[in-house]
Structures are given as C-alpha cells and as structure tokens.
Write a protein that binds this DNA or RNA. Structure first.
Lengths: 361, 361
DNA sequence: GTCTATCGTGGGAGCGCTCCCAAGCCGATG
DNA sequence: CATCGGCTTGGGAGCGCTCCCACGATAGAC
C-alpha cells in the first residue's frame, strides 16, 4: 500500500495524497475528505524510510547515554528523564532512538556514532549528563550536528538544559545553617560530572556567606550510588575530626546509603545529624526518617531538552539554547522540619509523609 | 558524500562500493582495499534511510513499554532490561527505538502503533512485560509483524522470553518451609500481569506439596512498588488472623516496603517473620536486614529477547520461539540464613553482605 | 584451439516518498 | 471581453541506496 495506490483509489494524484498526509492546506475540502476516507479504510501509513529519504529528515531524536554515565543507569533518574523525553517526542510525532555506549573506549562509541550520526539515522541528539571531558561534545559541534546536553557544559558554548544545581545546594545548606547546624559535611558526586561540581559550589558558597569555611575532611566524593553514599558517610565518620551535625548529600540514592551508615553507627537523624539529599525521586524518598531533599524536575528537564532540540533542528544556525530549571526544597524528617510519622496511622500513608515544600527561584 | 562519490574517488562502480560496505565477498582484494581506504579517509557512512528504502529493512528494533506497565517504569527492572536490549542490538549493528504509550486509552497507543509499525519504522518489536489483556499482542499477530514478549502470554502462542517465575517462587517458599516456617504469607504483583500469576502459582504449589493450604487472608496483591509492598504488609498484619512467620514478596521493591512496615510494627526480621523477595536487583538489595531474594537474569532476558527477535526477523514464518531462563535463590539475612552484618567492619562492605547462593534448574 | 564455468564488475531499475514547477480553473478586475 | 492573480491539481525529478542482470575476462576441460 503506497501513496500512489491511495491516490488511485481516491481518484486524485500522488501529490494530493501527500499534501493530505502532511497537513498541507492547499487541498480542496472535497478532495481532502475523499483521501482521508480511503486512507482510513485502507489503514494506510506512509513508509518512514521513503519519507526520510525524500525529505531528508528522519523525525527521530537520539537519546545518548555516554558510557561513563551508563554505570549510573540503574538510578531512577534515567527512567524519569526517558519518560520526559519520550513524552515530548510522542507529542511532536517524533521517535526516540536509544543510544548507549555499551563498552569502554572508542570502539563501540565510534561505531554507534558513525552508524547513527553520520548515517543520518537521527535528526538530533540529546546527551544525558555527559562527563566533562567527554569528546562527543566537541565532535558533534565540529560536525555541526544539532544536539542538546542534559546538564550544562563548562567549556563549550553549546545548547543545554540544566537544573539550578548550585542554587538548590545553596538553599539546602542555608536551611541547615538557619536551623543552627554548624559543622555541615557534604557527600559529592563524581568529580568529573558538572552536576557534582555545581552542587559542591552551592555548598561552599552557602558556607562562606555564613562566615564558615568548608573543612576538607568533611567533604567526600561518592559515585551517586547508594553504596557510594554509605562508604562516603563511613569515611566522614571515621575521619578522626569532630563529627558533623549535618550532611548535605548530592543525590538521594547516596543519602539513602548515608542514612544507613548513620544508623549502623548508632547516630540519630536528625537529632545528632541532619541530612538533606538531592533529586526528589519518589522511589528514594521512602526512608526512615523520611528524607528532606532538593527536588529537581527531571521529567520536565527531558521534555525541555526535546523542545530545545526540535527548535535547533528547525533552525540549525541559531545560537545555543540554554535553559536552567528551578529546584525546590522539600523539608521533611531528616532535617528535623517534620515530626516522625506516626506508626500504623489509620488510613494514612506513613511511608511517604506529607511534606513542607519551600518554593524557590 | 554518497556511494557514488566514493565509487568515483576509488575508481570503481557504485555497486562495488555497496558490496564492500555490506561485506559481500564478491570483490577483489585490490578493489576492496582501495574502497576501504577512500571510505576511511572520507569518513563515509551510508545513508540509513536510503538503505532502508532500498533493502526494505530498517535495522531498528522497537522496545515497547505498554501504558499499563509504564507506571512501573521507575523500577530498576527497566533500566536493566534496556541495557540488555541495547547491548545485544549494538552487537548486531541494530538500533533501538523506544516506544512508550504516554497516555491512557487508544489514542497515543494507536498513533504510536501506526507510525512505528505500519510505517515500517522498525523491523520488529520487543514488548516489555505486557499485561494479559493488552490488545497489542493480537494486533501484532494479526499484522504478521515480528515481535517477542518479555514475559510469556497465557492465551496466545507467540514468541517470548521469560524467567522461571513459578520455579523461583516455588524454591523460595520451599526454602522457608524447610526452615520451619509454617504460616507463609505472600504479597503478589498486579493480578493482570502474568509474572504475578506465575509467582503466585509457585507459592501455592510449594505450600500444597508440603501439605499446607494457602490462607486467603495471607495473600495480598501489591503493585510492584515499594509503597504497594508497605501497604500490603500492613494489610496482612492488620487482617485479624494469626500473624504469619514468613512472607514471600513478588518483587524486591515491594519487599523493601514490607520490611519497612514490619519495622514500623516492631516486628523483627527474620526472628519474628522471615522475608524473601524477587528480582535480585542490586539497588533494592541494600536493606536492613539484607534481603534474601529470587534472582532473575534481567539483562540476559533483554539480550535473549533481541536474539529471538533477530531470528524471527530473519525467518518470519518460523514457529514461535519460547525461552525460559532459570532463576536462583540468594539467601541472606532476611530469611535467617546469614548473620547480621557487622557494623563498621574494617575495610569490609557491610552494605551488601556476602551471600549464600543456591543455584537451581 | 574452442567451449563452458567462474569470478569480478558495471549499470539499470526501482524502493515510496517530497519538492518544485507548470498547467488548469475560477472569479474578480479594468 | 481580455487580463490577472489565487487556488487547486498533476506529474517529473530525484533522494541514496540495493538488487538483479548482463558483460568481459580469466581459467579449466575436452
């Protein structure tokens, strides 16, 4: 079943059918109706490859998970991002191609790059949180290929969508300070990811504004996993210096591990140590005590990345689009802003307690 | 840069270049070398759409997340499955298109179906855990479109890859019985998912083989989320009947919620109640006590699904391929088979304790 | 030395669309 | 009544490949 076939059945030309299919207004109502009728009854849909070949656009958006990031792929961050991306693509009648570098080094990466980018398989690419030194950014820029980063890039002037990591971290630490916490530790993410760097910067700034200096022994890098958070917390506890009375953790998964480490060390949260995480993913918020956290709009980030990319694909020469989404503070038990949830509350939901939200810029 | 261009530069015909690109042996070594050289220095890659149009194959595999399943998409199950699928596709030089029905009802679903399947956008589809009554299965079968289910289907004779849900559940419950547990509860998944049904069947069979009858008040359906597991456990505890001394939970996420509910109810695990989960995902295994669980090879399931699909795409008329992968029991603290992990163990990793594995058929 | 198989190669046809240009038709205009 | 512009329509050309067939060269068989 082809365009030509439909045209024959509707008694019009191939061109007219093409116009109907593509929503071209230059078709008489009568012809349009006839064609639409035939299309419906034949259950016709134009052939994607033929369309792509002739129009030089595939209507496919690539979603690239760099190898360095793939190790974190089990984190619920990615499903959330994917949902946002797919949703926006569906709305725009585009498809999503998932590109993952499944092995270390240039081999797979190069193969995927050639097949997908150079083979014009996709019209544009969204890169899920690249690491700072990832060569793909420079390569895409050089090739003049439309792309959008999820997470800003420090060295290149490129399009990106990011959340206000620095502001969110600043907010969290300022909140802890305002509640009388004085020795605030931080568990950061991997040092080569810009989100880690920005969250750390927010932490440092907040401390400095309050006249404190960050203490080296109180800052430990994790790897964004729960296990990493556990070990980082252990490291802080066993560092020999005076124990902190609060810890800001760069991801909820790590915060969850940190809570575990504190429990294992018989420290009470929030009484002995207050904890604030980062992410706001519902999955990782079910803890005892319920985690206070900086919420970032991940799905919205995915949607926004698609919007930016579509815009970029439409106007390849336009200046880079850069969008930073706000974060907000969700204050619950682990920072002491909300009472412990009652146990066996009749009809209530004590797994995720209601929460005090603090909206921000 | 086209085939023709490369041909001109290499002093051969378009056909010869095509043969080289596609690994056709009917090319002289001299010509092949010359062409490969030109391709390399021009960084050429054939145009995907042109290729697809002429060859009538896209080399794209669709990965469909049905709407009913999408609500569970945040579960680490899906990243694991995706990783397996993408890995196998990369190896076979295929691409992955992610299809999600992002809204309820036929609208999006139909739109995606038409665009992707009827538009011949993909050569075949992998369906991630459909629900029993999903009409997509019958539709694909009717259209004669190659597809593989992740999770078997009870009504249709179709290709699928599944894990031995029933056997795994049977193993877990038999283990609990062997350790003297007598009142064994079960938290199942949604009743319209075949994995739930099979795991429940294994539970019932194991009980019956030991001369027990499943007690209705001790079986509660969850929704595969942590919160669902929490509520299900609460429901069992407050049902008024004699408390169980063990509970088999159909997913690790739910088991994690169940542990929380038990803790809130001041019940000790495993002393008062033993718990065994299902999944074996590392992320959800970090709990106190560390969860015993039935491990299913999710990534392998994804890889296997791709292999089956490629086979099916190669031979469209062949009989359905059905493959069931084995599960195994991972015995740790929550069923009492492993001591509580020591706290602040020097150099050790007490977040995920070492474990006793029981390999099975 | 002729006949036939084998191998490497080239080029035509065509995949199913989109894009562009030209042609036909209409009512409005001077 | 001839002219003009807007609207609708049709068809040619071509997107960059693959597939098939045919051609010439080489080599082996008789």
């Amino acid at each position: 079943m082809t365009l030509e076939e439909i045209a024959r059945l509707a008694g019009v030309s191939r061109s007219t059918v093409s116009r109907v299919v593509n929503g071209d207004p230059r078709v008489s109502p009568a012809a349009r109706q006839r064609v639409e009728e035939v299309i419906r009854q034949q259950n016709f849909h134009p052939h994607a490859a033929a369309r792509s070949l002739a129009s030089r656009r595939t209507r496919i958006v690539g979603l690239l998970i760099p190898y360095a990031v793939g190790k974190l792929f089990r984190d619920p961050f990615f499903p959330a991002l994917i949902e946002g991306v797919v949703q926006a693509c569906n709305e725009a009648d585009h498809n999503v191609a998932l590109m993952m570098e499944t092995s270390e080094g240039g081999a797979t990466s190069d193969r995927v790059y050639r097949r997908v980018i150079r083979g014009r398989h996709v019209d544009g690419v969204i890169i899920a949180s690249s690491v700072v030194e990832d060569p793909i950014v420079a390569r895409l820029k050089e090739d003049g290929f439309p792309f959008v980063l999820v997470g800003r890039h420090p060295h290149h002037d490129v399009s990106f969508v990011d959340v206000d990591n620095r502001g969110g971290a600043h907010m969290a630490v300022t909140h802890l300070l305002a509640h009388g916490r004085r020795r605030i530790a931080m568990i950061t993410g991997p040092r080569n990811m810009i989100a880690s760097i920005d969250r750390y910067a927010g932490y440092v700034t907040a401390l400095q504004e309050a006249g404190h200096l960050p203490e080296p022994a109180l800052t430990v890098a994790g790897d964004f996993t729960r296990r990493g958070g556990y070990h980082a917390m252990q490291q802080i506890l066993s560092s020999g210096v005076e124990l902190p009375d609060a810890v800001f953790v760069a991801s909820d998964a790590m915060a969850s591990g940190a809570l575990q480490a504190l429990r294992d060390a018989s420290l009470r949260v929030p009484d002995d140590i207050a904890v604030i995480g980062f992410d706001g993913l519902e999955e990782t918020l079910v803890s005892r005590p319920v985690l206070s956290t900086v919420v970032q709009p991940i799905e919205e980030e995915g949607r926004e990345a698609v919007r930016a990319l579509l815009e970029l694909m439409e106007h390849p020469d336009r200046a880079p689009l850069q969008r930073v989404l706000p974060t907000h503070l969700l204050l619950r038990q682990s920072c002491g802003c909300e009472p412990e949830s009652p146990v066996h509350q009749k009809g209530g939901d004590s797994l995720v307690a209601s929460s005090v939200e603090v909206a921000t810029a």
